[in-house]
Design a protein around this nucleic acid. Structure first.
Lengths: 136, 136
DNA sequence: ATCAATAACAGTAATGATTACTGTTATCAA
DNA sequence: TTGATAACAGTAATCATTACTGTTATTGAT
């Protein structure tokens, strides 16, 4: 069987994610970790992000067009995606654990999970939009 | 302003999607349309799929890892994605129109829509899995 | 402590999905 | 009929991600 060996690069990636409110992409993690490990390779970041998500320490969010985002919070929760800037925000309160069971009857197979994503424009981009509109 | 001109390639793509129960990827559309237009280019398929989804005639489903899928059914409905084969199925009955309003309070911006995706293993893949397991 | 076995690394090449570019053809309003 | 230009086929480029390769680091067993 395949044992997992310690690596300081992986621990740095884990620490960065856990200390971070946002949901960075692989590239954003890469840019941040580079300050600590200037020679780290993007492949190493991807390999470790996949390792961590496979063993359940982090979550990989694949539901936006564009790059995947990574979330240190593995508890059940949903997200809000800004159509403008692509940033991913938490929606901490809302929770619908009964959905899998309710939807089971009409599903064409066995449901093991679901994702709920809200789309819209975040406050940051709304503010920028207004500024731009009033300026013209 | 930019006017849209008729093209038989685009109408063939539209017709293929509308007459299709599945949610094909750009490549699947390409392979199907090629029987009718042997020289059609994959770029043309992408351009028209994007055009059709921009003007609201079809829906682009970007929430699976891997290629996007396209849906001629633009009415509000959710989907089931098989983790094994990647196929996208409709979940026609379930509908939660009040979610946008309910979630609005805790959203970091303005919600305009949401997507709900169920993940699991479809009956086809369950059957294959059982066959394989019993054969060994 | 030393020593293989091998996981992880940095660096780079390859892949898959999608978009952009280029010169030519088809549509359509005047 | 014609001129403007949208759409085309073909191809090159881009972006996100994975795979490969030779080297380095970790680790369990001597």
């Amino acid at each position: 069987m395949k044992t997992i060996k310690y690596s300081k690069q992986r621990e740095a990636i884990r620490a960065f994610l856990c200390g971070n409110r946002s949901h960075p992409t692989a590239d954003e993690v890469y840019e941040a970790i580079r300050r600590q490990f200037p020679n780290i390779s993007l492949g190493t970041v991807y390999r470790n992000l996949n390792l961590l998500s496979e063993c359940g320490d982090i979550r990989k969010l694949s539901y936006t067009a564009g790059p995947d985002h990574f979330d240190y919070d593995t508890s059940d929760h949903y997200h809000f995606v800004c159509r403008d800037c692509g940033r991913v925000y938490d929606m901490p309160s809302i929770c619908l654990p009964e959905l899998n069971r309710e939807a089971g009857a009409e599903a064409p197979g066995v449901i093991d999970s679901h994702e709920l994503v809200f789309y819209g424009i975040c406050r940051d981009c709304l503010a920028k939009g207004e500024k731009k509109a009033s300026g013209e």
